[in-house]
Amino acid sequence: MERRESEITEQEWINKIYTGGAAAYKDFVKAYYEHVYRTAYAVLHHHQDAEDVTQEVFVQIYRALPEYRNQGLKTWITRITVNRAIDMRRKLARQKVTVAQDEQWIEEHAQQADSTTLSTEQAIMLQERKVFIQEELDRMPEHYKDVIHSFYIDEKSYEEIASELQLEKKSVESRLYRARLWLKRHWRREDFE
């Protein structure tokens, strides 16, 4: 009769992973996935971020396994997870600050664009920039494009967007936040200066 994964000792896990390779590691991930996810979620309070950290943790554990020194497998896994989740929380906090700065930059440039004292050269440059931005927006995933356009172009509130897209207000906030992160990852700021 085969023992359940939770009954395998830590040394047996280590031996099983070393001798069984990827297949054995897959069993290990299955056995500890819920623990790692719950630990990450306790720090981050966000499903997708906790999922991301969980994936990263198992990659880190696999790489760090040769350095493991029998200090309590579950404790070691928990420490790695908590550290990775805290790193993610700090990274997200920095991104929020950067996104806020970018929003301020966009607002300032939009106010300049509204000015009626634009020269012909400025008007042409503004038009070229609008075309460029529209082309870049067209590259965005559809579900991000909808909220970005509704919020920034149509200037609709979260409630209006939620009603229009038949979503919860929290979902609109989440999509808008993730859309901004997508923009940060795929756009270079110098393209818009």
Rank of each mutant, 00 (worst) to 15 (best):
Y177N: 08
H45R: 13
L92T: 12
Q127G: 04
Y62I: 01
I17K: 03
V29E: 01
E135M: 12
E164F: 10
A113D: 05
K91P: 04
Q71P: 01
Q104K: 13
W105C: 01
R178C: 00
D146V: 13
Y18S: 04
M125K: 15
W13D: 00
L181S: 09
R180I: 08
I17C: 05
K170Q: 05
A110I: 10
E121H: 15
A22M: 03
Y68W: 15
T78A: 08
K16V: 05
R3L: 04
I133F: 14
K184P: 03
R139F: 02
L118K: 15
T98W: 01
D114L: 14
N83C: 06
R79V: 07
V82N: 02
A42P: 06
T39G: 03
M1A: 09
H46Y: 11
Q60I: 12
E168H: 13
Q60A: 15
W105L: 13
E10R: 01
I77F: 09
R188G: 00
G72M: 08
D49S: 14
H45V: 06
F192E: 03
R3M: 02
E160T: 10
M1L: 10
G20I: 07
A22T: 14
H46A: 11
V43L: 12
E193F: 14
G20N: 08
A123D: 04
E142C: 05
L137W: 12
L44E: 09
K169S: 03
S171H: 11
E2D: 00
R139G: 00
A50T: 12
R3S: 02
R3V: 07
R189Q: 01
F132P: 05
N83Y: 06
I8A: 06
A50W: 13
K91M: 00
W187P: 03
Y62R: 10
V53S: 11
R175M: 05
T78N: 04
Q48P: 06
Y37W: 15
M1H: 09
S163F: 13
E34V: 11
E5F: 11
S163R: 13
E10H: 00
